[in-house]
Design a protein around this nucleic acid. Sequence first.
DNA 1: GTTCGCCAAACTACGTCTAG
DNA 2: CTAGACGTAGTTTGGCGAAC
Length: 383
Amino acid sequence: MDLKKLADEIDDITDPTAIEKVLFHIYQIQEEDDEFMELLIETCKEEIVLWEQPWYQLSSCLTRKLQETNENADEQYRTDAISKKEDEKIKKNWRKFIKKYNLPDKFVSFARWRNKHGCRNPNAQQEKVRRYVAAYLARGLQRTIYQVYKYVMTHTGENVKKQYTPEEEKIMKVCFYHKPEKAVTYLSAILCREPRGIYKRLAYINNGKPPRKRMNWTLNLATKFLTSLMKHTGLTVDELKCKKFDLSVWLKIQDDMDHSHAYLQKFWYKYLHPQLFIKCDIKLNRLRKKIFKLLRSYPYKVWTDIRWKELVNDFPEGYTHMFLYTICSSAVRPYRDYLTTPLEDIIEYALAKTKKARYKERRLKTLKLNDQGQLEQVQYSKA
DNA sequence: GTTCGCCAAACTACGTCTAG
DNA sequence: CTAGACGTAGTTTGGCGAAC
């Protein structure tokens, strides 16, 4: 069951024995999963939900977002990413579940459970059981069953959510070489990754990565960008504040600037927007300190719990969540395991750092459009 | 009517270069 | 040596049509 071992056993990816080894590995995984699934179905086929469920957990659809809304209900479910605390609750529910039914602890097998060949009727026995287990995991959470199931699906596995390791890439190559049409399905099972990520990866392998193009932003280029943005939206500079623009607008700017719209969008929200609409002289280090102190008043437990869009509401209008994120993440990133360390420790570390930072006097360069339609830096008199 | 496969866009973590 | 600039890439989200 070890990925590394499997990769090590393969010398030549084009050799037919390579794919045989991978297929055998898949076969073993499936055996294990099937066995567990049968056990689950056998154990829970008669089970029905006896605890009280909020309205949003009553849907019979496990793999799609909940469609219904219930405006009148007091209880609404959350729609942001699952937090650390909720993650712990789900795992606790799982432990309760396997204890109650005296089952082996095969969470991964449950996470890999798909309805590939079975009956698609949501009330088929198999599906009922799958939904029952998911509902059990969602007990006491302010989430739909779909949200919890999806979370388990994508956050369970050997090495979750990081760069592809060389071993993983090797196995990917074997699958794409020998079984291109089935590769994504296979890999999703072996690597415990979302098929979509693997598709994207496949696109890179087939078409090459998007060309790398560097852009050195100058006042002239930023002016060109801003002019293009105003032209295609028909708005004045001030009207651009806090707006979202349609993709069609971004595509036109992409043509004007000859740069990918994704990149230009980032530039706008991360840099230009704050520089244009924060109308005062701010010291970046002082801002950083303010944000970290503010973070203490939120219930976030780890770095990834932070909802930057929520946080930005505590700031005046020119600030964007991307800007706050960028300012803070650069300070925190040298801290090892900053994503999983308790947030209090991270805040301590960052605050200590702001005291001894070398560029203590660094300020945000704010910009304005002058009479000639050119961007220029706003000069503040030294007070 | 529901689930799944596939694609595209949004979001955000991570890598790398360089000015100071 | 390091903060900041900026590119790269995995994950999440949403939509649509085909399959069952």
